[in-house]
Amino acid sequence: MEKTWIANLLPQDEYREKRLLYFIAEAVFILGVSLFLYLMVESFIVEMDMPGDRMALLCIGFLITYTTLRSTLTGIEYPDVASEKRYQKEKRLRIYSTIHFWIIFLFISILFKGIPSNLEETFDIGGSATFAAIFFFILNYLSLKKSYKKNKDLLDD
């Protein structure tokens, strides 16, 4: 691949690098078409007046979500997990990393919102952290399972 600063943010493995570039390009293309359609509707049909900050969040959210989901569902995130033993080990590691994630999320929430003073605030912070951790785990688990299945099909030593 040509030397470019973006190469520093991409995986070293050339297959994963290529796939990730495709996913980013797909996301940018869909986003471009959507923004063009939005511009047409906004200019000629009906004024939607979406605030700039919401629009920016939506665009960034779409780029991240699309790329993450495509990588997860393609099974390229764990390219070396091909045995049952390694799979079980990675599964355990995902559980630990989910617990870490839950603690960090909780800590950051408390940092921004302050220590909860009543039951409702406790549920608010704890609930968000738990929901985010469950989502984080499902995404990681799905990715691991997809990668394992893909790698097993390619294995024939």
Partner: peptide, 27 residues
């Protein structure tokens, strides 16, 4: 093994598997 070849050419084992099965055209 696939793993040994992968490590010698600095790619993931998955990449070697895909190349052997003709599912990926390497550079």
């Amino acid at each position: 093994t696939q793993e040994q070849l992968a490590s010698r050419v600095s790619v993931a084992r998955q990449t070697i598997g895909l190349i052997e099965k003709g599912k990926y055209n390497p550079s």
